[in-house]
């Protein structure tokens, strides 16, 4: 009885979350098993067709494309971001807070603006081509837009602050006496890094990778603006199916496929950080 009274105020909050997150997601699951007529109206008949279509080679390629994009985004942000986080943690207090502010600031800048900036830089008559031609390094503009690499650049650029901050939090917590002990025992700089720093910052790496991987799957405006029509990714595909194609059941099935990919990554994350009490969003 006391328990019920204690939990009573939580009911509206639970209702808010269940009605607005739980039920809509459940509807997606249900809809993914239905089909539609030629006008886009939904027919209430159980079918597995939507899921079968996922295995069409065209769509499998889209899945693979998105998966690769998300994995490479994770790797690139890791390799570029790790040194940033590592160096930042070694700075003195005053410089460090300035540097952290500079790392976080892009989060507050419109994501469309940040994506658009790259098309100004990389376009055929963009800034980089102009500078290179002015310096006579090239005589024809380099074709840098609308490629897989362009989308990858834009996505990694958008998400790298997540990676840096995750790793930074781990590096910052590192017990410096362990490093000193290693040096005292004759461990070199690199040896200490690979045997002590890297393993101890693994939770930060895993968390950063997860935080980067999930949004990388679905940021379709980046692939739209920087990838043109040449590269199809899961986000664009689902968006096209739902809006232009008016095929919500198929879009639902693909959205479920996307969520399953996310769950797979979260499962791996929980395995990697099994002995660690840090949670994903802290």
């Amino acid at each position: 009885m006391k328990k019920i009274k204690q939990n009573l105020p939580a009911l509206p909050i639970l209702a808010y979350l269940i009605i607005l997150v739980g039920i809509p997601l459940l509807l997606v699951v249900i809809l993914s098993f239905l089909s539609r007529d030629n006008l886009g109206n939904i027919i209430f008949e159980f079918t597995l067709d939507n899921y079968k279509r996922m295995f069409d080679s065209v769509y499998l390629k889209v899945f693979l494309n998105s998966f690769l994009l998300a994995i490479f985004t994770g790797l690139i942000t890791l390799f570029i971001g790790y040194p940033v986080a590592y160096f930042t943690a070694g700075l003195n207090q005053k410089t460090r807070s300035l540097v952290i502010m500079l790392i976080m600031l892009p989060f507050w800048i419109s994501s469309l603006l940040r994506t658009y900036g790259w098309s100004i830089l990389l376009g055929n008559d963009g800034l980089i081509n102009n500078i290179l031609m002015f310096l006579n390094i090239i005589d024809k503009p380099l074709n840098m837009m609308y490629k897989f690499g362009t989308v990858l650049t834009g996505t990694a650029y958008m998400l790298i602050p997540f990676m840096i901050i995750s790793i930074y939090n781990s590096v910052d917590k590192l017990d410096r006496s362990l490093l000193e002990a290693s040096y005292d025992l004759g461990g070199g700089k690199w040896k200490t890094f690979f045997n002590i720093t890297l393993p101890l910052t693994m939770p930060g790496i895993a968390r950063g990778f997860t935080l980067v991987f999930i949004p990388a799957l679905g940021l379709y405006f980046i692939s739209d603006l920087l990838g043109g029509g040449n590269n199809m990714f899961l986000g664009n595909l689902i968006n096209n199916m739902a809006t232009r194609g008016r095929n919500r059941p198929l879009a639902s099935a693909f959205a479920i496929g996307m969520i399953l990919l996310v769950l797979l990554v979260l499962f791996i994350y929980s395995r990697v950080t099994k002995n660690n009490k840090e949670s994903l969003y802290q």
Partner: peptide, 20 residues
């Protein structure tokens, strides 16, 4: 439950709300 909207990709969340 609070984590759900953060881990579900935005496209999927958008579609689910559209349907709802």
């Amino acid at each position: 439950l609070m984590f759900l909207p953060l881990i579900v990709p935005e496209v999927a969340l958008g579609i689910s709300l559209l349907i709802f």
